[in-house]
Design a protein around this nucleic acid. Structure first.
Lengths: 353, 353
DNA sequence: CTTATTTTCGGGTACGTACACGAAATTTTC
DNA sequence: GAAAATTTCGTGTACGTACCCGAAAATAAG
């Protein structure tokens, strides 16, 4: 608890006290060679005494070396435009960071194709960026990637989902468990005693996206805590084309007790389309993310609730965390959970994705 | 959607194109006199064409005029040390903002005394700060204060509670309604069919802190939605000394059906003390805020849940919102809700206030 | 038309740090 | 011992903007 109220001192004052030039002080500050051990120690002593804090503004202005950030996230696709929002957040951050001399390299991969992840991650590392924003969709591949980042001491910020057991610089995204838990809570209002619930993981990756499973965990935890006895049918649809989805769902709906469908990602729009075609809009449908397609069905009463987690802000804040760390040299919150927003046809107009 | 990818241009480039000196360009940029209408228009035209964005870093470094922020929040008191956390957040922000040449004037008032608010707010305005962080504890007085701020065009950020019907620059704090709603949800797990619930507003101000009432609204909304029929006893204790609190509570506890106590602010510690003295720690107690006193009772099992809303971060983020607006000239989120954290004796050790 | 006044403008320095370059001091070499 | 090599250090400029001060141009006053 030493007093922080010392007047702002600069290199000039340090140089004056040490009877050297500011260039020498600067060399010590950056641990550059060309300073005798004796004067180096003297200067370090004075720096400590004065609790010198470099002026970041001046440093940024004068600094020649420009930082380079890189992002590695899925591309927005036909299947889902979800990833457009995070990309927008990145662009917003890029806009603001440009005047600090920071450039942003964008590497997008196909979230249904691990190979593209590997390829893009290799290309990214080849650029030797100073900081990375990563959506770790594939656990194994991401772990390998993190390994390499650690070797190059490049800080990594996760968004959208965490990487279990990996310590990046920070995670900015939903509390997936809570998110599933909350969905369960919502659904508990809608469900009647004898109803069954169909939980749908729609993703092409065989080893299901780990974050979907964490949502399921949260969901089941709530259900168990409440002691509910409704039948809970989990289903993984590995093909994401409309026909396959339609086929699987219509088969399941032969079970007349199913009255609630819970889709664990943004593919809820595809399910809504199917329900509409099957003329089963009487079913209750809950899913994720604020996509245009989904909003259409929300308006039409096919989708009942959407749960959103500010994807754009996730990416924006993730980029800013890199800036805080690498430019301002500030400590960064290691976990930043986004709010869990509930969207209905009553409030979607006011929602800010 | 014009492309933003233009190279970064500075005043120098503008001056070159306009065949004038950078000083003249600067005068136009700051709307200072001494430029003929003709050249002024020419320069403005070029500025627009180039989509010139001033370099904030250089601007901050060169700027002579230092910004002054001011805060107007309750002082930490004997009654509750709650307000220590927001003050810490302010200090943290001050530390970071100092190198941008920003100073922070602190005005603290007694949250039990409207007069001190008036006095301090007058003193504050006399300083003519460039931005204000306000905890609007007293509705009427705060409205008056906001009026004056508007006249001087000083942006104001609210923390802790919003000011209904007033439009400040931003609000950073809890969603009070949701907070009460969540409390109700928590309590619904604890309560048994025949139990009564005692809701306690402990505050000296006659017109109860409006934010307590909003918590009550949220609470009652949940209760109603669920169709619960438990007796819900609301009580306002206007004296905050231990004896009065003890007297009121022990009187109420004559009612044997009361099994759950919900305290709508940090005075839950005082209630816990009473329950301990009365040897009624069997009662369930839920309250607000992560204060040392309360944690003691949480550990001792007298308090069952605490609900916290990151008071330190509220203030920190509020200050940074002023910085974003006034220095970076960036748009600011008008509402920033804090997470609603649930603290128990199992997880309090890991909580970051 | 000359002088005084006002308007318009440019040169130059400052902000605090980074770093190139060359000068001075020291050490090494023969 | 001097010359060469090396180490150590200071001077000066740059980053992009703000703003002082004085010069030049335009206008007004006599």
């Amino acid at each position: 608890m030493k007093k922080e109220s010392e007047e702002l001192v600069g290199v000039k004052e340090i140089a004056r006290r040490a009877n050297v030039s500011i260039a020498t002080v600067d060399r010590v500050l950056h641990d550059r060679p060309g300073v005798s051990l004796k004067t180096k120690e003297k200067i370090q002593q004075i720096i400590k005494e004065l609790n010198y804090q470099p002026n970041i503004v001046a440093r940024t202005l004068a600094s020649r070396k420009k930082l380079k950030f890189a992002i590695l996230i899925p591309a927005s696709s036909e299947e889902t435009s979800y990833w457009k929002a995070p990309l927008d957040g990145v662009l917003q951050a890029e806009q603001e960071l440009r005047q600090y001399g920071i450039s942003v390299e964008k590497y997008l991969f196909d979230q249904n194709n691990r190979k593209t992840f590997l390829k893009q991650s290799a290309a990214l590392l080849h650029q030797k960026p100073d900081g990375i924003l990563l959506a770790p969709m594939f656990v194994e591949e991401s772990n390998l990637f993190m390994q390499q980042c650690r070797e190059h001491s490049i800080p990594v910020v996760f968004i959208n989902s965490d990487l279990p057991g990996q310590s990046g610089l920070a995670y900015v995204g939903p509390d997936l468990y809570q998110s599933g838990y909350l969905s369960a809570h919502l659904i508990s209002y809608l469900v009647r005693p004898a109803d069954s619930i169909l939980m749908l993981h729609i993703t092409r990756e065989l080893e299901m996206d780990h974050h979907l499973l964490r949502k399921e965990d949260g969901f089941r935890a709530y259900w168990q805590e409440q002691g509910y006895t409704h039948e809970l049918i989990t289903m993984h649809i590995g093909q994401t084309d409309p026909e396959t989805i339609r086929k699987h769902i219509s088969r399941q709906l032969k079970n007349p007790s199913i009255r609630v469908l819970f889709v664990t990602n943004s593919r809820v729009a595809a399910v809504a389309k199917v329900l509409e075609e099957l003329d089963r809009t009487d079913l209750l449908l809950i899913g994720y993310d604020f996509l245009e397609d989904s909003i259409v069905y929300l308006k039409k009463n096919v989708i009942d609730f959407l749960i959103c987690q500010k994807p754009q802000e996730q990416a924006y804040l993730g980029m800013m965390a890199l800036y805080d760390k690498l430019v301002l040299n500030q400590p960064v919150k290691s976990v930043h959970f986004m709010p869990i927003d509930i969207i209905t046809r009553e409030n979607y107009l006011f929602y800010n994705n």
